[in-house]
Every structure is written in structure tokens, then in C-alpha cells.
């Protein structure tokens, strides 16, 4: 089990943090640039979220595709799986969006992402006095805590094996 990469976006669609643990396909070969990569990812989760709310079979007030919504309106998607990877997603009301790409056999990670936000992001980033809300950041402390957290949840164990196999 392993994580490939993580993105954290704010409400303005700015990627405030990203990290790749294992990414054999270079960003250049994909989106062309780092910014392009971030923008594509943001566009994907945004659009997918819209589609999910529009297609919701249980919500009697189905919003039309593309109509503006308030925070918390409509249902939320949590993950999607491809034959290669699984994309896990969490959005909190303050507009922070977490995207974690993992091994496709990963279990439901909604609780893990929630505690990543509660215990790691809030503790090490929001409470860091040098963090400028809404701006991209780098923090060694956050990175260490993130690695420890993912390892604790069994999400970084086979990294070496995967790297060796690549």
C-alpha cells in the first residue's frame, strides 16, 4: 500500500501544497508544467464534484449542472478508482481541498483524510505563525508529521518496494 502524491488546494484554486512520493511519470510528460498539473487536478475535482451533485439520485432538489452552489449544498464525492490508482478527496467548509492519490486497493480513506486535516494540517500549518493563510507554503515540520501520519496509517510502507519495482 502506498501513496503516490498529495495536493492541497484553497478555495481560490491555488495549490498551496503538493508533494510526490512516487511518480515515475514526470509532470512534464503530463500537464507540461507544475502549474498546469495543479490546474488540471483542481479542474478535475471541481467538475467531478459538480457532476456528482447533479446526478445525485437521492437529492430531490437536483441542481442543474454548472449552477452556482453554496458551501455544503449537494452531495460530495470521496474517491474514484482507476485501474492504476485511487484518488481520495476531502473538502472542508473553509474551502480547503485535500487530494491524495494512492494505490488502487486502498480502503475508504475519508476518515484518514479528515484526521489529516484535523491533526496535521491544522496543527502544523494553520497554527504556524509563518503560514500566510491562502498562500503556498513549505514546512519541514508539516512534511515530517505528514510522513509519520501516513506511515502510521499504513500508507507509506511499500514505498521502497514500489520504487524498486519501477
Amino acid at each position: 500500500m502506498g501513496c503516490f502524491n498529495i495536493y492541497i488546494f484553497n478555495r481560490q484554486g491555488v495549490c498551496i501544497f503538493s508533494h510526490a512520493w512516487f511518480r515515475p511519470k514526470s509532470v512534464k510528460a503530463g500537464a507540461g508544467s507544475q502549474e498546469g498539473d495543479h490546474k488540471q487536478m483542481f479542474g478535475l475535482i471541481w467538475t467531478l464534484g459538480n457532476f456528482c451533485a447533479t446526478l445525485d439520485p437521492k437529492d430531490p432538489s437536483k441542481p442543474q449542472l454548472g449552477t452556482p452552489r453554496k458551501i455544503g449544498q449537494g452531495c460530495k464525492f470521496r474517491s474514484f478508482t482507476t485501474n492504476n490508482y485511487k484518488c481520495n478527496f476531502l473538502e472542508v467548509p473553509s474551502g480547503i481541498k485535500l487530494v491524495l492519490n494512492t494505490h488502487r486497493e486502498a480502503p475508504d480513506l475519508s476518515d484518514v483524510l479528515q484526521s489529516l486535516y484535523d491533526d496535521i494540517f491544522v496543527e502544523y500549518v494553520v497554527k504556524n505563525p509563518t503560514y500566510n493563510p491562502g498562500q503556498p507554503f513549505t514546512s519541514e515540520q508539516f512534511m515530517n508529521a505528514l510522513n509519520a501520519f501516513l506511515r502510521q496509517n499504513g500508507l507509506l510502507q511499500q514505498q521502497q518496494i514500489m520504487q524498486a519495482a519501477a
Binding site: 453554496k70 458551501i71 467548509p93 473553509s94
Partner: peptide, 18 residues
């Protein structure tokens, strides 16, 4: 306030304020 909101949402486990 703009920082506190994240701590509040994390501690209070609130997922929507519509």
C-alpha cells in the same frame, strides 16, 4: 478569525454550514 475557522472546523467536526 481567518485562521481560527480551520481549527474550529477540525475540532468541532463540522462538515457544512449552508
Amino acid at each position: 478569525g481567518i485562521r481560527l475557522v480551520d481549527e474550529f472546523l477540525a475540532k468541532a467536526k463540522i462538515s457544512r454550514c449552508s
